[in-house]
């Protein structure tokens, strides 16, 4: 018998054995922050918020919308995620913005020329379905949280039309009104033209049992 073995000293599994996976459950020390979700400025005001602030926060979210919304190259790809008739191009956003601005009493929309340039790029994005009111509610003298929750647009995906989600697909709430969220999950990212499924085609064609050898 050799003194040094030619085999591993141990062979443990921690993930492949289902009962052990609990070991990996992470624990977060992050404090949730109180904020609120509304469909639009009118609904915000109906929850006894100052109408002017509601209007301002809604406009802020709308401005972010074109930047952070997920982008698609075709309407079909966008509708596959957000449902038929739930997608728009930045051009239609412009039209809605103008309407909103008009009803809000503003005469001109300074963002319009920029949006017309974007329209020529011809991509599709989901319509804004609501907004997260950031820290509008957080004015009652509470200590400011370490990380703030920016005001931002919210969306609803085709497979779950009852849930408001951020542009990066974080679920926020199932109904309008106050909600507590983890700030780290609510940081808007620049929305970009994501494409998927660009690898794997040859495995489908060749239909082997394994891609390995």
């Amino acid at each position: 018998m050799s003194t040094s073995f030619k085999r591993s000293k141990k062979a443990a599994l921690i993930l492949m054995v289902p009962t052990a996976t609990l070991l990996l459950a992470g624990c977060s020390t992050e404090e949730p922050v109180e904020t609120a979700v509304y469909q639009n400025a009118d609904e915000c005001a109906a929850y006894y918020n100052p109408p002017a602030e509601c209007q301002a926060e809604f406009a802020k979210a709308q401005q972010l919308h074109a930047q952070v919304a997920p982008k698609y190259q075709s309407q079909a790809e966008c509708e596959a995620d957000f449902g038929a008739g739930q997608c728009e191009t930045p051009a239609t956003t412009l039209a809605q913005n103008t309407t909103a601005a008009t009803t809000g009493g503003t005469a001109t929309d300074p963002a319009a020329p920029v949006q017309q340039q974007q329209a020529s790029s011809g991509f599709f994005m989901p319509m804004m379905m609501g907004f997260l009111a950031g820290q509008m509610l957080n004015r009652s003298g509470q200590a400011a949280p370490k990380q703030s929750v920016p005001t931002q647009p919210l969306y609803k995906s085709r497979d779950d039309m009852s849930t408001y989600r951020t542009a990066s697909n974080q679920p926020v709430a199932r109904q309008s009104g106050p909600v507590s969220v983890l700030p780290s999950k609510m940081q808007p990212q620049p929305g970009s033209m994501v494409r998927r499924g660009g690898f794997g085609a040859q495995a489908q064609q060749r239909q082997t049992m394994s891609s390995g050898g």
Partner: peptide, 10 residues
């Protein structure tokens, strides 16, 4: 005393 040529996981 049996052994194996198998230090793969280590």
């Amino acid at each position: 005393g049996a052994d194996q040529f198998n230090s793969l996981q280590d």
